[in-house]
Every structure is written in C-alpha cells, then in structure tokens.
Design a protein around this nucleic acid. Sequence first.
DNA 1: AAAGGGGGGATTTTT
DNA 2: TCCCCCCTTT
Length: 777
Amino acid sequence: MQQYISQLNEAQREPVLQKDGPMIIIAGAGSGKTRVLTIRIAYLMHQGIDAFNILSLTFTNKAAREMKNRISDIVGSSEAKNLWMGTFHSIFARILRSEADKLGYPSNFTIYDSQDSLRAISGIIKEMQLDRDVYKPKQILSRISTFKNSLITVKAYFNDPDLQEADAMSKKPRMGEIYQNYVDRCFKSGAMDFDDLLLKTNELLTRFPEVLAKYQNRFRYILVDEYQDTNHSQYLIVRALSDKFQNICVVGDDAQSIYAFRGANINNILNFQKDYQGVKTFRLEQNYRSSRNIVEAANTIIDKNKTKLDKVVWTANEFGPKIKVHRSLTDAEEGRFVASTIFEQKMQNQMTNGQFAILYRTNAQSRAMEDALRKRDIPYRIYGGLSFYQRKEIKDVLCYLRLVINPKDEEALMRVINYPARGIGDTTVEKLTVAANHYKRSIFEVMQNIDRIDLKLNSGTKQKLNDFVTMIQSFQVINENQDAFYITDHVSKKTGLVQELKKDATPEGMAKIQNIEELLNGIKDFTEGQREIDGARGSLAEFMEDVALATDLDKDTSDEDRVALMTIHLAKGLEFPHVFVVGMEEDLFPSAMSMSTRSELEEERRLFYVALTRAEHQAYLTYAQSRYRWGKLTDSEPSRFIEEIDGQFLEYLTPAESNYRFKPMIDKDVFGDVDKSKLRLAKPLSTTPPKYITDNQPKPEAQIRKLKPVSANAPSGAANLFDNKLTAGNIVMHERFGRGQVINLEGVGADKKAEIKFEVGGIKKLLLRFAKLDIIG
DNA sequence: AAAGGGGGGATTTTT
DNA sequence: TCCCCCCTTT
C-alpha cells in the first residue's frame, strides 16, 4: 500500500490520507483524480474499512468498471468485488429492485429508456386528442424530466400555481394532466424511466426512515466523482445517505460541468462547503496529461467564464507543439483534412489509430468524418449516437424479452404485438386499450382473458391474440430453467424476427441480422461471466436488469486499433495524444441554441475546455466556411472560441481569412447541393478531374454533381459539340461509365441533359456540357 | 390488415 | 438528407 501512496505528489496524497469527514477535491483536468480516488478507496480498505461499507458513485459504468479493476490490482479482486461502485442510476436501480415492494412496484420493474418514454408520451397526447404541434412530445418529455429532477411530483405540480400558470402561458394548460397520465401509465406498466430511478430513491429514503437508516449504516464512506454534474435529485440522495456519518468525499471540476441541459446543477459543487460542517478542501492543480501549450491555452479560455471556483491548473510538461487551426471550405473538405492529417501522422511518427480522436458538438457531424476516413481506409469507431441497444432490430428483441420478464410492460407490448405482422391491427389494439383502461388492468391481462370479455372481436382475431399470449407464456416457462442466452436465441427464432429480417437482402438488412448475432454473442459473454459470480445463474432477469442503462461505451470490448469519433460530452474523462475538435463554428459550437443566456454560453465554453484538455500532445481546431445542415448548404463563421485563445498558443495552417474569403459565384438555390470547394478548384472541362477527386474515388454520381458549372456560361469543350448531334437511341461511350444508350434528352442550352442507360452502372443523367461522350452508334 | 407512397420535421448535448 | 408518421390503396 505504501508504495502506491508514495507515488503520489503532495497534493494528491493529502486527500488520500484524509480518512473521515466531509471533503471536496477540486481536480483540474488531467490532474490524476481517478488515481487519487482509486488509491483512496484502496487505502480505506487497507485501514480496515469493509468494502461493503463503501459506496462510490461514478458518471459512467465504464469509469466504475475501470476503477474497480484498478482497485482489484491493489487489494485483490476478492476484496474489491464487494465494493458498491457504479453510476447513480445503476446503483439505485439495484437498491430499488430490492425495496420495490415498499413503493408498490414489482422487483422486476422495467427501466424505460428515452425512446420508451417518448413513445408513451406520444401515445398519451394522441389519446387525449391534443394537437401534437402544440404539445410536442419531446418538449413535454423534457419538461417532465425537469419536474422529476427537481422532485416536483404530480401532486406538487398541482399545488404550485406558478408552474401551472407558466404552462398555461405557453399554451399547454393540460401539461399537468399529461404528467399525471404518464406517471400512471408507467406505474401500471411496472416501469420506471431514468429520472424515476432517482426520484423514487428519494421517495424511498424520505418515506421509510428505516430504509434510510439501513443504507446510511451500510454506506459509511461515500465518494462521488464528477460531482459538478449532479442534479438536484442526486444531490438530495447523497445528502440523505451521508447525513449520519458525514464521511462524504466529492470530486469534481466546476470547469468541466457540461450537463446543465439535463438538470445538472453546478451550484452543488460551488456550494459544497456550505452544505456540511468542517469541510476539508483539496485542490489538484498539476496537470500530468497535456503539454504546456494546451494547458495554458485552455486556461485562457476558462478565464472568460465568470462563474467558477478558484483554481489554477499548471503543468511541468514540455511546451509541445502549438494548437493547429485549420479552415476549410466545406465540411467534406474538413473531413479530408482530418483524414489526411491522421494518415500522414501515422506514416511519419509511427502512430496508431487509437491515438487519435475526433470530437464534435453534434452527432450529425460524424458523417463527413466517416466518409473521409473510409476513403483513406482508416479504421474508426463511432461512440454514442443511436446506441446499439436502441437500434430497431435490437430493441425489438429486447422488447420481447422485456415482456417475458414483465408482461405489464406496455411500451414493449405495443412495439411487438404486431411485429412481425401477425394480424393484430390498430383496431384490435385500440379495443384492448380501452378495455384495459376500463378494467384497470394491463393490456396483457386483458388478452389473457380475451375469451371471457366481449370486445366484439371476431374469432380469428381472438385466436391470434390467444396465440400471442401462449407464445409469451411459453417463453416464460422456458425462462424459468434456461439462461439468458438460450431464451434470447429461442425468442429471436420463435417470434419470426430473424425470418422477417432475412426477407431483406439489402446490405442494411444483412447488417441487422449481424447485429442480432452480436447481441447474442454479448449475452453469451454475459451468461458465462455471471456463472463466476456467487448466486447468479446468468438468467435473463439478471441480464435485463440494466440493459437500459448500458451504453455503447460499456460494450467496447474490441481492442482493435481505431480512431475514436464521439461527441465532446462523451469524451469527458478520456484522453488521446492527438485530438481534432471539428466544426469550430458559430451556431454550431457554441450551439445556436445555447447563446441566449450567459450561463448557457459559459457551459458551451466549459465544453470547449473539456474538448481541448482531452489532448495530450497535439490539438487541432478545424472549421468550415460552409457545411450541410439539415440537407442544405449553409455558410458559417469561425467560432468565437478560437479567438478567445491567446494567439501565442495557436498556429494557423490556412492563410488569413480575409485574403481568401470565398464569394459564392452561383445561386445555390438553383444548383442545390453544389459543393463549393469543387467549384472553386475544378477546371470544368479538364480531361481529368482534379487530382484529389480521383484520389478519393467518389462514386460516379457524386462526381457528376460536384462538377456542375461554375457559371451558366462556362467555357464549353468537346462535349458541347454533341449538343445538337446527340439523339435518343444513340450508343455512346463515356470515359468512366463505359458504353451506354441514350434514352432521353431534356433541358436546353447549358442545362441540356441526357439520360443514358449504361451497361454497367444503370441509368444516369449527365449534363452534356461536362459529360465526355463519344457517339459510337 | 398490410404495404407503399407522400409529406413534414429534424439537429444540442445523455444516464 | 434521412427518418418517422400518416394516409391511401389493395
């Protein structure tokens, strides 16, 4: 143990040795906070604290797992496995399962992910016959989420005239009813959404003092990582649990608080000293991760924020290269810059793919990057976005499994009751829903009793309903004795899901089947892993317990060498030698939706701080002057954040903007999705396309479009000569597409196009001014 | 009841 | 550009 402690610097050692009482560690980026937390926990155990008495809350499951592994290395795995370590959501889901009966929930309650919640809300709005344009499901859901995270129950809502008035003012007078219906519907389904996991924990601890006492006594030492991103609900749980022993250690960095949009309250960390008596404060300010240039540049950014704790991050590392700033004309070109830079760096400095990360503000930006990387044959992995477990085909399987565990789960039932199609249509489902509401039973219960209630269903439909019930029940029987892998494999076959997918022979369809195979492999791993755990048998219930809480970050098992692509939010806590922060543009980063208030802008700035401090050695900031946004080419200005960095830390790779300012030469409404970078550089009628285009080998179609005219009276070349000669029926030869026959001609003058059916590659429309065609017959 | 086509909306971030 | 929902047709 001593050797681990002696490896720490002074500032790190102090909080490790501070055993009791409330304490806060303000940890700058890259200051070794995970290390401090790990060693602190190990040291607590070394001093005789039972692992059962330590609760450690992290921000992601992955962080928990990694920390647990590191602790195992120090104290041995048999000791470490008893630690309570995980996210708020997963830890309290576990506690709620064992205490569920007190709240009237089954212990096998379902956890609704945001998709489920949204569908439930949409359904309610439809049932209430409200206007979906006024009551936008997404908005409603996020409002309900805000309520729950602030512990505003339905009852509290109706006791608060201000809230009701606010909703009435925004033309949503029935907000409260929707909230009520949503809560009822979840309860009836035996389901909790993400926010419920925290809200119900609070309810449990408040309403049942003996339960509170039990967990207070159990968790004598509590550690909370990323405390700056806790919300009010989480804050109250921590307060309640730590109240008796006051051995609470929170770790965080106010400069890295980036989740206010989902209710995180930065004041939790700013005010921690006031919440407990005799708080000891520790600061970790030495950065071990990044070069001096990056650390100091990041400091100049965060200095712009007013709301912050007193802290100066510094480093003893070497200066390193300056931050490189690159401007490009389009998002596609930005992608090419990133890809070719990675390519060159790998060549020149023997770097691996895994040493690069591409970070962006929005998931939609990944596409341009993916395209560019693919063309360079650089392997990559995208994190986040639509997670694996939310893909349609996976979700379908999971919903059948959810029904096996909890047949009251209405969202699951609605999703699969007629998929694959089995003749149970909207009308029937409608009748079932009405009956369920009438009898105050779940839809599944109504279906079980379908022969005893008169719903004016014809016998064929009744038979289909009975078949469905029988099928689910047969799964339940099998589930009693078999493990999660067996039942999942069985379900995916017996429900016809796999056969359904096999009908689709497209690459997308094949990918779906592969995804299901991947799911099965994952479950196989899980069941085998569970066998090693005491008392677990790898059952479906064990697997389903927290799939809703699993993210892609958690199933990152492959150790393949790939470039990482992810949002900045997802990158928090990670580090890479080379980091590209792309899309450094106004309205994108900072986001157009986060510039109305100072605090929103400050959060964006913290987000930028997080992005930059992920880099160990080299950071790149790139921006494009125009990019595709919702399908349209839009112009953009460089992000203010670039200017906010002291110029001494930057190296501009592209000439100053004023010399190069691109003036659109064409009306983009007329030419649609014209790629400006090509327009500027393309010599319209050169015999070969510009070199970089051939390098990248775009699809033929794409190239045609990219070579559209610079102006309506562009110089004409050989192709132009065909204007009048070419007629439908001609056999022509094209440089790239080969032999084909003209089917049709349309347009006049410069816009004249020929529709040509090529022997290879099908029918294409070519602008005659550009198409290099030889008439051969 | 099923399937396919048309129209409208979306993009800020996630446990 | 893509995805989802609704409406139409069969």
